[in-house]
């Protein structure tokens, strides 16, 4: 019979939803800055597959001649982005949530399984878990990308005063390219993330807003039972850290 199971802690929901507009505005203000020297492209020699960006993109989004505006927004929102990210990572470490998020033994196998299932090459869904292997890889990667954006951003923000950092990242021009590539990475992450959220449905989406999911567990299987126990333990008021980290993979 259906029951209500806690999924995402309140703090993580706030971090997640604050990050969404802040990252969107960082990308917007970053594009205002990038416009002033929009030299990147995908291609080789004289062949260009994709230019970042065609003039029409700037025209449609009214992004031309706003370098000063872009910089002033970028350099205030960077604090919100950085602090929110640091608080999120600290929270996952202290609360034990990191155990669900960080790739572990079996993550690659589960991620492959998830991918095959998602593209329709495998019927059975990946074993039930708070986050499957593909999610663990994606959510850990995107946090590392955030750290990368902070570091490459600092390297191009203060390339003289942080000359060591800039040099370590390959110099000023490489750091700028890395900073840009990470931004493209967020956009790709966002597209896949939205598609997956739509696929996963309302119950899953609501969990990121209200915190809980409604689960059917009329006949707990051998694999699901320890998971349910772990989820119960994780949602318990007293000790948010399960004594045994859930490893819901089948042997």
């Amino acid at each position: 019979m259906p029951r209500l199971v806690e999924k995402h802690p309140l703090a993580i929901r706030w971090f997640h939803w604050l990050n969404f507009p802040v990252l969107a505005l960082m990308i917007w203000s970053g594009l205002l800055i990038y416009w002033a020297n929009d030299v990147y492209r995908l291609g080789w020699g004289d062949t260009t597959l994709l230019r970042f960006f065609p003039q029409s993109v700037y025209d449609v989004l009214h992004m031309d001649h706003k370098l000063a505006k872009g910089m002033s927004w970028h350099f205030v929102l960077m604090w919100v982005f950085a602090l929110n990210g640091l608080l999120y990572v600290s929270y996952t470490l202290i609360s034990g949530e990191w155990r669900y998020l960080v790739p572990q033994r079996g993550t690659l196998r589960s991620a492959w399984h998830t991918l095959l299932h998602d593209v329709g090459l495998r019927r059975d869904p990946p074993p039930p878990a708070k986050f499957n292997g593909a999610q663990q890889l994606a959510y850990t990667s995107v946090v590392l990308m955030g750290a990368g954006s902070l570091l490459t951003g600092l390297a191009i923000y203060k390339p003289t005063q942080l000359a060591g950092l800039t040099t370590a990242l390959g110099g000023y021009e490489w750091a700028r390219l890395e900073h840009f590539a990470l931004t493209i990475g967020y956009v790709l992450f966002f597209l896949v993330h939205i598609a997956q959220v739509v696929r996963a449905g309302w119950n899953n989406f609501r969990a990121m807003v209200a915190g809980f999911e409604v689960v059917e567990d009329s006949a707990p299987t051998a694999a699901a039972a320890p998971l349910a126990a772990a989820l119960d333990a994780a949602s318990g008021s007293g000790n948010p850290m399960p004594a045994v980290p859930p490893l819901p993979m089948r042997p």
Partner: peptide, 28 residues
Amino acid sequence: GVPGPLRASLEANARVAATLLSPTQLAP
């Protein structure tokens, strides 16, 4: 040329940089 709070934050950033970073650091 920018809304007051953004100008104030640019100035605050400069104070943070002056405090945390070294003004005598040499460029490569």
